[in-house]
Simulated assay, not measured.
Amino acid sequence: MSYKNILIIRLSAIGDVLHCTPLTRALRQEYPEAKISWIVSPKSQDILQGNPFLDEIVVWDKDEWKKLARNSLKAAYQSLRTLQRTLLAEQYDLAVDVHSQFLPGFITWKSAPVRVGFSNAKEMAPLFYNRMTPRIGDLPMPQQYLGVLTALGISGKNPAMIMPVAPENCQNAGRIWETYHIRPDDTVIVLNSSTTWQTKCWPPEHFARLGNLLRQQGAKILLTGAKSDIPLIDKIKDSIKGEVISLAGETSLKDLAAVAQKCDLFVSGDTGPLHIAAAVGAPTLSLYGPTDPRIYAPAGEQHAAVLTPAACRLCHKRRCDDFICMARIEPETVYQEALKLLEKTKGRTKNSQPLYKEVQVRKIPVWNH
């Protein structure tokens, strides 16, 4: 069967949305004439902008809806029904839900006559699908998400993530290089210390120790993070000897992608910026405690991961009272892995992202007051 109007549902988060982007390539190859749309939350929409396989980004604020639900369940239900009617009016003939929870499943329901999802999705989401396939949980994340298409008889074979960088973002990164007098022959290493899970955070003193070791090798150190991370990042910066460049709160997601594309190594915990760096071809060294690097770490020869030796590892908890597992990853261990990866990726050929294409954006309000 040939589909003409396709909706992908993955509302958040940054890393997960990025892991799902290979779906757009596979669907475009299978249905070259189809209109392909993606419904996503505002915080993740920049991940999709520029994707040449997409025709439309539909923005709907899941977090705002949750606030509404806390105040009035009736209003929240009415909001969802309004969203469903809006999507129904678009006459999608195929909806692919890779968020796999009750709320996205409910959004999927009635949005299209054919609704695809994982048979082992969480929170009763399979109740809303009529085409299903099991999710194979021990595969790397992009391959897991691509697997949903087997319900349509499609074998997606290319798990490479898609995040084209716009020329203006490349120019912004170039200005950073000029401002801080970074030369073409400098070794530039990004240390990204911020994560959304408390349990994924590597201690700031460990980042500082790593920074000092890398500075001894003459590396230029860039620190990245959100505006809310500035106190933490300033603490790291002040503990590293010599010039350290902090970009905390100064880059958009697209600017961060352009910066990562120019660097020689990106060191981070398991978080969205790590996967952005991997998507644009930066060598990455990632640090793991509660999550499994076999599933969540970037795959490929120019990537490496360090897993904590702590016995409590792979717990998948977002918060922890002990908080020892990430601290058990020694800076000297990460430093040695960094040196190996820098040597291995010296003179690398950058991966080729498809050309950036501006994608139409349509916003659907959560609640019309």
Rank of each mutant, 00 (worst) to 15 (best):
D321P: 09
L355T: 03
K62G: 14
E205P: 09
W109P: 02
H99E: 05
G269T: 15
K363T: 10
K74Y: 11
T291K: 13
A125L: 03
C325N: 04
H275Y: 14
D138W: 11
D234K: 13
W65K: 08
F266A: 01
V17T: 07
E358M: 04
R70L: 15
I221R: 00
V114F: 15
N172G: 09
A166W: 09
H369Y: 09
T196E: 06
Y296V: 04
P167R: 02
I39E: 00
H181Y: 14
I295R: 13
I182F: 12
I136G: 14
E332L: 13
H275A: 15
D322M: 12
L287K: 02
W65G: 06
R115K: 11
I221Q: 02
L265W: 08
A310D: 08
K110M: 12
L314E: 04
D63M: 10
P142G: 02
K340G: 13
K340V: 14
I47M: 03
G117D: 08
K317L: 15
I36F: 00
L341R: 07
H275S: 08
V188H: 09
G347Y: 06
L253D: 08
A112G: 15
S155H: 07
L48I: 07
L287F: 04
L80A: 06
K350T: 13
R10Q: 02
N5T: 05
D238V: 09
I176N: 06
Y31W: 05
A310F: 03
H316Y: 14
L265R: 09
L83P: 05
G174C: 13
P283R: 06
R328P: 05
L139T: 05
K227N: 03
P203E: 05
I14V: 12
F266K: 01
P204N: 11
K254P: 05
T251A: 11
G211C: 05
M132Y: 07
E330K: 13
Q45W: 07
K122I: 06
E30T: 11
I233F: 12
D292E: 14
R319V: 10
P290N: 08
I47H: 02
R215W: 04
Q353I: 05
G117A: 12
E64T: 12
F323H: 06
V114T: 13
W177K: 02
A95S: 12
A95R: 12
L285C: 09
Q29S: 05
E168M: 15
I9S: 01
T21F: 15
F266G: 10
M124T: 02
W197V: 04
K363S: 13
T345L: 14
E332V: 15
Q49D: 01
Q91K: 15
P309C: 04
N120I: 12
L149K: 00
Y296F: 12
T271W: 11
R10H: 03
P22F: 04
K262W: 11
W38C: 01
W177Y: 13
Y92A: 10
A89P: 13
A69N: 10
D234L: 10
P167Y: 07
I236V: 05
D63Q: 15
A112Q: 15
G281P: 15
I9H: 00
G242M: 06
A69F: 08
D229F: 14
C320W: 14
Q302E: 01
D229N: 14
G269F: 15
L7N: 07
H303N: 01
G174Y: 15
I364T: 01
G218I: 00
E56I: 07
N172P: 08
M132E: 00
L146M: 01
T82R: 10
G105H: 05
L210N: 03
